[in-house]
Amino acid sequence: MMNSSMLLSITTFVYAFVSVLYIGAWTFKKEFLAKLGMAVLICGFACNTAGIGLRWVESYQMGYGHAPFSNMYESLVFFSWTVAALYIFVEFKYRERIIGVFATPLIFLAIAYASLSPNIADKISPLIPALKSNWLIGHVITCFLGYAGFAVAFGFSIMYLVRSEGKDEKGLMARLPSSAVIDELTYQMVMFGFLFLTIGIITGAVWANSAWGTYWSWDPKETWSLITWLIYATLLHLRMMRGWHGKKIAWVSILGFMAVLFTYFGVNLLPGLHSYA
């Protein structure tokens, strides 16, 4: 019998293979490896989707019946899913192939961490009453789309920095898209992430207001998402108004992603309400 855990373990291996293909396409300059990488990525994504769907069904069979976004394991799996979805979209929209080298490993790392880390339980457990709300679904999806945007932007920023190290115009670095294109794509991803993080924070606030009667209570997770938001707002202004581009923006985007990671993982080390995810 196939269950969701098995499907998601398979997904992990498929995503690992995708990263290998993209890195291969870059190092050996073989376009077809990147094409194959995209095909495999789509398969992995299908498997990931099925895994999440099945887990949803399983939670109903167990009588708890909730969307699979309620603990660290589920949220990491979903994080992989959103980054994969966004990356597939970006590759098709901007018709650039090699840009997956630094983005696809993130897809793999998130789900691998979920599957392999001994600290992360993949058990389905019931929701506490405060989490039983349709806002939960909207809140989680939008926040994760935001995180996904920032993750892909992070991948692009690293790629930018790597690219700008390449003095030699024929070397490995020169096979990456031009600096201008990477810079523009990073900015697009930051805007995407910013919009969805904004919506995510807002849905969270509306939900908090309907569950606890305050839309904002400065709990650490909330505060950290605001910190992340402020850093990216700064990035947008630096770029628009102060003409920052290239390396400087890449570094701010990396700083922003560190804040995302802290919002996501670090906050659980601090006291607060959001300890579930």
């Binding site: 910190i227 402020l230 850093i231 707002a233 700064t234 202004h237 108004m241």
Partner: peptide
Amino acid sequence: LTVVVLLSLA
């Protein structure tokens, strides 16, 4: 000033 204030808030 915007940049300074936003980062200070963060």
